[in-house]
Design a protein around this nucleic acid. Structure first.
Length: 939
RNA sequence: GCCUCGAUGGCGGAAUUGGUAGACGCGUUGGAUUCAAAAUCCAAUUCUCUCGGGAGUGUGGGUUCGAUUCCCACUCGAGGUACCA
């Protein structure tokens, strides 16, 4: 006979039951209302799942199960974002195919996930690296390639419609987003263009387009590096120098969607902080573009400014070092200095340039521009505080009105002209916009900021030297990656121009390569593939040796970035097995969108922005019913690791305990956290066995033990601070782990992992188990419960329901603990209370509740049992009676007995109100009685 | 640097959103039970002193009858910063 709470047996039993009965399989049609709960799918890393991963999954699982209890048809899927750099790095080192690495990791993840008893519908599992999935990622890419953005209808349209317009009227009446100014042409011009010319023009309109973009190039490694792979200006691998280099790259015209991405934030329930981040990232600013003629040169310098009202304060201009005009306008005398400066800034990363505001640097080009109104000469400088990627890559310098311009002018002794009436600019720039009037500004004299903005833009437009303009900080997203382990881009090159594969020819499968590194010539890893050419007659991939000029063409060598597959996966879950469509119309019409999305805020300006962009694009093509895919989003905080350190006396094998290191020269060394107990005591014998370097270690102890130092940092294999959930499941069970992770603190907050408190949650479950097993065997009473017990139950129902709805799971668990303590003290054994309590706990300790549910005589899974409803039959109140205070309103609490009538309570309140006023000794302006928590008064 | 968030006992955290600061859990101390241990149960537990008090929510100011909560200026920490996912 089973004595006590045998979690291992119970959890195994119910996990098998759920799998066998497909308890959590969601149907694509149902009379029940739908509810879609989504987790950000994991990248299957080699370190396996650590205790940080499940935090969000547990929270979403609790909510999914809760919604199921509430009568919803719940979709709660899971999958893997399985393309990524680590598997590729591993392949480079070991030669093992990333597919094998990925497969192994996924299997391990799945095993670990299964042990935690999640209510995932695994029948819908997807993997971004599988051909039947990335087929559709490629398909979406082709749609983007074959679309343009029509500003008139403010939506993406098929490129074929644009071609029709070109044929009929040229581009004169076309209002579309394109990457640079396209020379106007009419229908006759269009028909006279060569095919090559037509393609060149069309490429400027496509939403997925090719252009020259800057990348971090490492000549030694012959490869492009992510900013992440650059440490202190050199490559992380090998420490080689890195420079900027222009490369032909695929980009996505996300800029076309900037305004809609901004507006869309209004209608979704996402955290305000995250919306704010996206708003700042999109960075909308209104101002004007102003064009300055260059003296002795045909071109013009175009600047974007948010302060065209200060145009008469311009005393210099600054171009980004990468600006295309730099070479052309630099005078002979300045050539050397400019070249050196350009070279130097190419070595610096953009982030470095942005963070460094203290040092001012720049070089005079020797050239002069002409002020559009005064026609005065304005010296043109270059400076690395101007970024090529923002605005036009050039700024006008107004030292009196902008602090950075002020610093620049001061540093290089450039004239500072004051154009603000009554402003003191002797120490710093005057940046207020208020009602200060302008002076020395010709036709703007006497005008305020607002008036001058209107007036100056008007004049600029009349003179054709500028126009009002809205600028976005958001840049088009670079879509090419010089990597192997990603989706191949379904493009081949004919006469140097990209041609999309036909949808029926997808998927274009990743070819086998010998080497996962770039080719010796610096081509991406796919350049190593020998079978990577497209035969347009037979419509299949053929050997490179067959490439010719008429029917077989080279295929694209770049692959897609990590965010491609994750930008639409939430739609695929609705209908994941479909081989005819990326998602069927019926499925998407039923599920519509994600009701609750859970994931980390580190994706704020990456995945969470790109995916909104793709959703809007697919919506424009009438492929999806809604243009925002997630109604509500919650960011769970990261669980941090607590690394352990031992301290080695320099040059010896002696290790000094933490509190004795003060006067000793020591080097801290990370050791595995599993070698340390919760009191920070090191298991010295185990350490000796752990790594050879500790074999002959000597320990300087304090009070007979060796104490380690601790530091909180990101959980990672290399820091030896990973805590594996498997061990905890073994020791305490999945239910305890789930509850403990939630009990650790607020969901949104980052928190260090610490196993110390887990026994509290575990003993809660044991205590609760004993409620149902008063004498070591299951027994509940059918007699009616006491009023007291019912009060406790309903108090708990109310609190738990509110807390689940607010995702306040930590306080929710506190309520459970209080409840069980009270019921234990009351010796409650009645089914009337204990049965609803089991359902209440079921979203949290699911295995536990299933077991109790079965013991109570139920034949089906508890997961569909109706959730208990709070019936306010009994008043819930604290037993204290004290005055608080007031501020316009008055708050107090009154002790109440259970049997009071409504009018009796109101009398008590009135009486208390009078007492309070006397007690306070001050008469409030207005008295609103807010009687504490007495909200539910039922007659 | 910039954007976003955070800081409360020995520890994780709570505080009805401006009204008893420290719920709940861990840890610690004492007690019960036990031959003993485990398990379980009960009680105490912010600090400090001269036992009457005093101080107290990262620091310094401010608003208010009243501030963990609102405002200003800092310090420290986390995430992002466009090719990690």
């Amino acid at each position: 006979m089973t004595v006590g709470y045998n979690f291992l047996e119970i959890e195994k039993k119910w996990q098998d039951y759920w799998a066998k009965n497909q308890t959590f399989k969601a149907e694509n049609n149902s009379l029940l209302p739908k509810y879609y709960v989504l987790d950000m799918f994991p990248y299957p890393s080699g370190a396996g799942l650590h205790v940080g991963h499940p935090l969000g999954y547990i929270a979403s699982d609790i909510y999914s199960r809760y919604k199921r209890h509430k009568g919803f048809n719940v979709l709660h899927p899971q999958g893997y974002d399985s393309f990524g750099l680590p598997a590729e790095q591993y392949a480079i080192q070991t030669g093992q195919h990333p597919n094998i690495t990925t497969e192994t990791n996924i299997n391990r993840y799945r095993e670990q996930l299964d042990r935690m008893g999640f209510s995932f519908d695994w029948s819908r599992e997807l993997r971004t690296s599988q051909a039947d999935y990335y087929k559709w990622t490629q398909w979406i890419f082709l749609l983007l390639f074959d679309s343009y953005y029509c500003k008139k209808s403010d939506a993406a349209k098929p490129l074929s419609e644009l071609v029709v317009q070109f044929e009929q009227t040229g581009n004169i009446h076309v209002d579309a987003v394109c990457d640079e100014k396209v020379i106007p042409f009419n229908s006759i011009d269009w028909s006279s263009y060569s095919e090559e010319e037509k393609q060149r023009i069309l490429l400027k309109y496509r939403l997925a387009y090719l252009s020259d973009t800057e990348v971090n190039w490492c000549p030694e490694l012959g490869t492009v590096l992510a900013n992440d792979e650059i440490v202190n200006g050199v490559s992380e691998r090998g420490g080689y120098p890195v420079t900027k280099k222009k490369m032909k790259q695929w980009s996505m015209r996300i800029g076309a969607y900037a305004e809609r991405l901004l507006q869309g934030l209004e209608k979704i329930d996402w955290p305000d902080s995250l919306k704010e981040m996206q708003r700042n990232w999109i960075g909308k600013s209104t101002g004007a573009k102003v064009r300055f003629d260059i003296q002795g040169h045909d071109g013009q310098i175009e600047v974007f400014t948010t302060r065209p009202d200060t145009l008469f304060g311009v005393t210099f201009m600054t171009l980004a070092p990468e600006h295309e005009l730099v070479d052309q306008i630099t005078t002979q005398e300045q050539k050397e200095a400019v070249a050196a400066y350009v070279e130097a800034s190419a070595q610096r990363s953009e982030r470095d340039r942005m963070s460094d505001v203290k040092s001012i640097s720049g070089v005079f080009t020797g050239a002069y521009a002409q002020h559009p109104f005064t026609k005065e000469s304005v010296p043109v400088w270059i400076g690395d505080y101007v970024l090529a990627g923002y605005g036009t890559g050039a700024v006008m310098g107004v030292p009196c009105g902008d602090q950075r311009d002020y610093g620049f002018a001061n540093h290089f002794d450039i004239q500072i002209k004051n154009i603000f009436e009554g402003a003191d600019i002797s120490k710093e720039a005057f940046t207020e916009k208020g009602n200060t009037k302008l002076k020395d500004s010709d036709f703007l004299n006497g005008l305020t900021y607002k008036e001058a903005m209107v007036s100056v833009i008007d004049k600029l437009e009349k003179d054709n030297s500028g126009e009002g303009n809205v600028n976005y900080r958001l840049r088009d997203a670079i879509f090419s990656r010089q990597r192997y382990w990603g989706e191949p881009i379904p493009i081949y090159y004919r006469d140097g121009f990209p041609v999309g594969l036909k949808p029926k020819n997808l998927p274009l499968e990743l070819p086998e390569v010998e080497q996962y590194l770039p080719t010796p010539e610096g081509a991406p890893p796919l350049g190593n593939a020998t079978t990577w050419a497209w035969d347009i007659v037979n419509e299949k991939v053929v050997s490179n040796t067959e490439i010719n000029e008429s029917t077989v063409f080279p295929l694209e060598l770049n692959t897609m970035p990590g965010w491609a597959g994750s930008s639409w996966y939430f739609n695929r879950y609705m209908d994941s097995g479909n081989s005819e469509a990326f998602v069927s119309k019926e499925a998407v019409d039923y599920w519509q969108d994600v009701d609750l999305y859970l994931g980390g805020s580190e994706h704020a300006t990456g995945h969470l922005l790109y995916s909104r962009f793709w959703q809007k694009f697919l919506f424009d093509l009438n492929l999806l019913p809604v243009d925002e895919y997630a109604k509500k989003l919650i960011n769970q905080g990261m669980i941090l690791g607590s690394s352990a350190f031992v301290y080695r006396k320099k040059g010896t094998q002696e290790y000094v305990s933490k509190n004795l290191i003060a006067n000793v020269e020591v080097e801290p060394i990370r050791v595995d956290v599993s070698l340390v107990n919760s009191s920070n005591e090191l298991n010295t014998e185990e350490l000796k066995k752990w790594q050879p370097q500790f074999k002959d270690a000597l320990f300087v102890l304090e009070d007979g033990v060796y104490l380690v130092g601790r530091e909180v940092e990101k959980m990672s294999k290399s820091k030896y601070n990973v805590v594996n959930p498997d061990l905890i499941c073994e020791q305490y069970g999945a239910d305890t782990l789930r509850m403990y992770e939630m009990f650790l603190g607020p969901l949104e907050q980052a928190k260090p992992w610490n196993t110390a408190g887990i026994s509290g949650v575990h003993s809660f479950l044991k205590k609760m188990w004993r409620l149902y097993h008063p004498n070591d065997s299951f027994s509940v009473s059918d007699s009616p419960a006491s009023k007291e017990a019912l009060k406790t139950l309903h108090q708990t129902i109310k609190k738990v329901t509110e807390d689940i709805e607010n995702f306040s799971f930590n306080t929710c668990i506190s309520s459970f603990m209080i409840c069980v303590n009270e019921l234990t003290a009351q010796k409650c054994n009645e089914k009337e209370v204990l049965e609803p309590l089991a359902v209440l706990l079921s979203p949290f300790a699911s295995h536990f509740s299933e077991e109790i549910w079965e013991l109570l005589g139920n034949k089906t899974s508890i997961s569909n049992a109706p959730f208990p409803v709070h019936e306010p039959k009994y008043l819930v109140e604290s037993t204290k009676n004290y005055p608080v205070s007031f501020n316009g309103k008055m708050r107090f609490t009154i002790e109440l007995s259970l049997d009071l009538k409504k009018n009796e309570i109101e009398e008590l309140i009135l009486k208390e109100e009078k007492t309070q006023q006397q007690l306070q000794g001050r008469v409030p302006k207005k008295v609103i009685v807010v009687p504490g928590k007495i909200i539910n008064i039922v007659g």
